[in-house]
Write a protein that binds this DNA or RNA. Structure first.
Lengths: 154, 154
DNA sequence: TGAATTTCGTTGGTGTACTGACGATACAGC
DNA sequence: GCTGTATCGTCAGTACACCAACGAAATTCA
């Protein structure tokens, strides 16, 4: 009887929250384009010509995962991918016209979905909610890449 | 330039939050037993003898996922699995002695990790945070299983 | 009692998401 | 110039997480 109440565990709640979002996205936004795919597409609409590593930084995905998402977006002709002529290691990505259209369409639906998703909270609670999540996520992410103790004597 | 600011999208933040948690779990709790595995184990410590479907309900996992998690826990001899003699469809699950020990050990570490995870928030903010996540997740989950509009005229 | 229906677990398919290792390319210092 | 190092993308492996479809077992009800 040493069991724990998971409803006080932020990690467990985070997983449930993400699943709930997945559900809602699937029914209200798109069944073909997933939320991470939209995030990548969105990053490329904002800054066409990014390489994969930088895209990953922007949306919070590691290199392997970006590679897979990019391959799916490419298979649907939503983005183009070319080797950087100035640096043979990089692949440069940009949305196709189809990709731009898809992004515009999904932007509208995503906004609607966010409203439904946050509907159980008052307007004030909503902004608190976003702020708190962001601070926790940022802090934990920071633990991974510890800030270089500047001017460490080499 | 129609790109969107993802930091206002709860779904995107939920994903980042979960990844941050995954990271922290891996470094502070266990590299072998994952958070969903702990959740299942915890449910069985609380109520030994549950069948897979009910476990899934308790921790928020669908039947396929429970099957995989259960198979991994079984492979490590942390839980036992037997056919229900009274209902041949069910598999009854219970923790082994090893499973009980592992659960005890992880419970301590999990508590420590939760503290670190929530450290960027004040005590007051922490409880608000947990409450808000839970309400949003519960509401979205409710959308999936709409309450039967009782006595719908067939 | 016997047939239609429901329920449980499994399987196959898709899509994140991570780590670790690897080849190719670029760059740094000598 | 040449060698060691760092970086980028890929690949293999593991682990969620969902849906749809299926067989076996149980239940409903005609």
């Amino acid at each position: 009887m040493a069991a724990v109440d998971l409803s006080t565990h932020p990690g467990h709640l985070a997983r449930r929250l993400q699943q709930a979002h997945y559900l809602l996205w699937n029914t209200m936004v798109s069944e073909e384009i997933t939320s991470p795919q939209f995030a990548v597409l969105n990053a490329l609409v904002a800054e066409p010509g990014l390489d994969q590593r930088t895209v990953g930084e922007r949306v919070g995905l590691d290199r392997s995962t970006v590679a897979e998402v990019v391959s799916r977006l490419g298979r649907r002709d939503l983005i183009d991918k070319v080797r950087d002529p100035e640096d043979g290691r990089r692949s440069l990505l940009r949305p196709t016209d189809d990709g731009m259209r898809a992004h515009r369409r999904l932007t509208v639906r995503t906004a609607r979905m966010n409203q439904v998703f946050l509907a159980p909270l008052s307007a004030g609670e909503q902004s608190v909610f976003l702020d708190l999540i962001q601070r926790v996520a940022d802090a934990a992410e920071g633990l991974r890449n510890p800030v270089e103790p500047l001017a460490s004597p080499r």
